[in-house]
């Protein structure tokens, strides 16, 4: 497990599919450092993989920042922010629904990633890029996720 940044807070480039491996490894280590259980780690890493691939394929590359967050009381979490300067998403509602895709893939990217995290926010401006911010919390018992159809 050597070779990646030791800390939780980091900024990683997403320029090629090799970078996806780094993003997954870093998020895995950061989630473990914050105190996530195995299932929650796996969910967040998978969400990160989906979102990083979106950034690469649809956004033409970009970056992700990871940061430790706290709710001011006992809970600790991890926030990931994916940013690209790509064409943006014209219809967010549609992009979040399953089965929607503008490239190759199963079209689960955004909607799927949303189901794997506790908080999900997307900001997209056609022509100037997309920012997706996701947050998950290391909690026991599991915190209920947003119920989605």
């Amino acid at each position: 497990m050597s070779g990646t940044a030791a800390g939780v807070d980091a900024r990683l480039p997403i320029r090629s599919d090799l970078d996806l491996v780094w993003v997954r490894q870093h998020v895995r280590q950061a989630a473990a450092a914050v105190g996530f259980g195995l299932v929650e780690q796996t969910k967040l890493v998978t969400a990160a993989s989906e979102l990083a691939r979106n950034t690469l394929v649809y956004g033409g590359g970009g970056e992700v920042t990871t940061e430790r967050v706290s709710d001011g009381r006992a809970a600790h979490g991890l926030r990931l922010t994916f940013t690209d300067r790509g064409p943006g998403i014209p219809d967010l509602e549609k992009a979040l629904s399953d089965g929607y895709t503008s490239g190759d893939g199963l079209g689960l990217g955004l909607g799927g990633a949303r189901r794997l995290v506790h908080e999900f926010a997307i900001d997209s401006t056609p022509g100037s890029g997309t920012t997706v911010t996701v947050t998950s919390w290391a909690t026991r018992p599991p915190r209920p996720r947003e119920e989605l159809r």
């Binding site: 299932v39 796996t42 189901r115 794997l116």
Partner: peptide
């Protein structure tokens, strides 16, 4: 692995 199976199902796959 269980964690992978749970995640895939949650992902919708």
């Amino acid at each position: 692995r269980p964690a992978v199976a749970i995640t895939l199902v949650e992902l919708g796959l």
